Amino acid sequence: MTVTRPHAFVMPADAAEVVELPENGAFTLLADASHTAGALGANRLRLGRGRDGARPHFHALSTELFHVLAGDMEFLLGDERVTVSAGGLVVVPPGLPHAFGAAPGTEADVLVVLTPGVERFEYLRRLGRAQPFDDLLSERDRYDVHFVDDAAWRSVRNAR
């Protein structure tokens, strides 16, 4: 009988791919689903002062975890608006519409973990290339990102 031992995945800081975003933002690609046998995907997101991270969407399959590393993040969780400071944690279950961005007047740095993992590195790369947003809409099932009406998010973000 052959016994297969599990193995760890290690992403050294200097080996992680960085996808630049506008106004000093960036995705640092840490682990995609293929690196973790589908268990999770992880990236680090740095957002410039008051910048949006994602418009309202939900994940049909995955739970998304946000650990705020620096700054303040503003979240819309269903109908609830929440600001989370460095050290705080947000866990969004499948099916809950959510949006997020750096809080007004601050930059933010956040670790994002999606579990179970979905291959999303190419999605994040496409966001970095400022690809027309409508091109991503047709990929919603592939990346498990399902966009919803963003009127509530726009009103929260524009009210500042």
Rank of each mutant, 00 (worst) to 15 (best):
M1W: 08
M1S: 15
T2C: 01
T2W: 00
T2M: 02
V3Q: 11
T4V: 05
T4A: 09
R5K: 14
R5C: 05
A8N: 06
F9E: 06
M11L: 11
D14T: 07
D14R: 15
A16V: 01
E17M: 09
V19N: 08
E20I: 01
L21I: 04
L21Y: 13
P22Q: 04
T28R: 15
L30S: 05
A33V: 03
H35Q: 12
T36A: 11
T36S: 14
A37V: 00
A37F: 02
A37W: 00
A37G: 13
A37K: 05
A39T: 06
A39K: 13
A42P: 07
N43M: 15
N43K: 08
R46H: 08
L47K: 05
L47V: 03
R49T: 14
R49D: 14
R51L: 08
D52L: 14
G53D: 01
G53A: 04
H57W: 13
H59E: 03
A60E: 13
S62I: 00
L65A: 12
G71M: 05
D72R: 15
M73V: 10
E74L: 14
L76C: 01
R81I: 08
S85G: 05
G87H: 02
G87M: 01
V90G: 07
V91L: 09
V92C: 01
P97Y: 01
P97E: 00
F100A: 03
F100V: 01
F100N: 04
A102L: 05
A103M: 04
P104K: 06
G105W: 11
D109H: 09
L111F: 15
L111Q: 09
V112L: 14
V118N: 08
V118Q: 15
E119F: 09
E119R: 15
E119N: 15
R120E: 06
F121H: 12
F121G: 07
F121W: 05
Y123T: 00
L124P: 09
F133Q: 03
D134N: 13
D135E: 15
L136I: 04
L137G: 09
R140K: 14
R142L: 09
Y143K: 02
Y143G: 00
Y143M: 00
D144R: 01
F147S: 10
F147R: 10
F147K: 07
W153R: 01
R154E: 05
R157F: 11
A159H: 13
R160Y: 14
R160V: 13
